[in-house]
Design a protein around this nucleic acid. Structure first.
Length: 278
DNA sequence: ACCTCGACCTGCAAGC
DNA sequence: TGCTTGCAGGTCGAGG
């Protein structure tokens, strides 16, 4: 489920459970997810204390007392759940273990943190400080959209000269980090911008497009900020979307007579209002 | 260098 | 009921 808001919500839930706690053991129930677990994964984690749990784009980073970083990605279907130890009388001997519970972190407190991922598009990696420093993906990620220094000027710079569509540019993690298929569509609707518009068109040298880039940057912040609140309050999916999965429904913009459409763009569904998004 | 496409893997809903 | 098909919120590598 995870775009930036869902990952941030997971981080907030997990942080108090993991931070300052020692990992007693790690159980790997299969050798790989999207890619194999690194060699020595278990041994390098055992006995480590998690100093902090942070997020960059859609990645979770657990800083360890060894100075290594446990890098985790939820892929398309990854989730964590926390199992707090209870008395043996509460055990359910008849319950089958979930076959998609792939990793179990046994904490010194007795709490167990389980990683579940049916599609196995997620992954975990263990990085030394040097590896983290020059990590090919991390080092190329674009700005954090919710950081104060992300603004229209920054977005315009990232889109300058690009011939791909605005939607594709937003999905490209080097442009802005953390948007996915849902919130890219949502942000474009808030900003009244067509998903098919050329990305470079919001960055003309004349500065005429500057207002457009500002509007889009503000829309991204708004959509993500709101989604974090909703996801954290109500659980996973941020319940109501403006356009996503709303094909055939009226455009939510007051006074707009449009009807939401869905079209495939770069192999993925794009939802938009053909009337007010230009 | 840039961009698009297919592949990765499972589960679920719709259609026949 | 059971089969097949298409679709799903992410990323990466091959190829144009």
């Amino acid at each position: 489920m995870p775009e930036l808001p869902e990952v941030e919500s997971v981080r907030r839930q997990l942080e108090p459970v993991l931070a300052k706690v020692q990992i007693a053991d790690v159980e790997l129930r299969r050798p790989d997810l999207r890619m194999p677990f690194p060699r020595g994964f278990r041994d390098r984690l055992r006995g480590q204390t998690v100093l902090a749990l942070s997020r960059r784009a859609k990645y979770l980073l657990a800083e360890l007392s060894s100075n290594d970083t446990l890098l985790m990605h939820l892929g398309m279907s990854g989730s964590f759940h926390v199992v707090i130890p209870v008395g043996a009388e509460n055990e359910r001997p008849d319950s089958r273990p979930d076959p998609h519970d792939h990793v179990a972190f046994h904490l010194a407190s007795g709490t167990v943190v389980i990683f579940n991922d049916p599609r196995r598009f997620g992954f975990m990696d263990l990085l030394t400080p040097a590896e983290r420093e020059r990590h090919l993906v991390l080092s190329r990620l674009g700005p954090e959209p919710l950081s104060p220094d992300f603004d229209g000027a920054m977005l315009a710079r990232a889109c300058h000269g690009r011939k791909t569509s605005l939607k594709s540019a937003l999905l490209d993690q080097r442009t802005v980090a953390g948007l996915g298929n849902i919130y890219a569509s949502e942000a474009l609707h808030v900003a009244s911008l067509s998903p098919w518009r050329r990305a470079g068109s919001i960055a003309t040298p004349s500065g005429a497009a500057r207002e457009t880039a500002d509007r889009l940057a503000a829309a991204i912040k708004k959509v993500l900020g709101l989604a974090i609140e909703r996801v954290s309050a109500r659980g996973y999916r941020a319940s109501r979307f403006r356009v996503y999965e709303r094909e055939g429904k009226p455009c939510p913009r007051r006074t707009c007579p449009g009807v939401i459409r869905r079209r495939t763009q770069a192999g993925r569904s794009t939802f938009y209002c053909p009337v007010c998004q230009r």
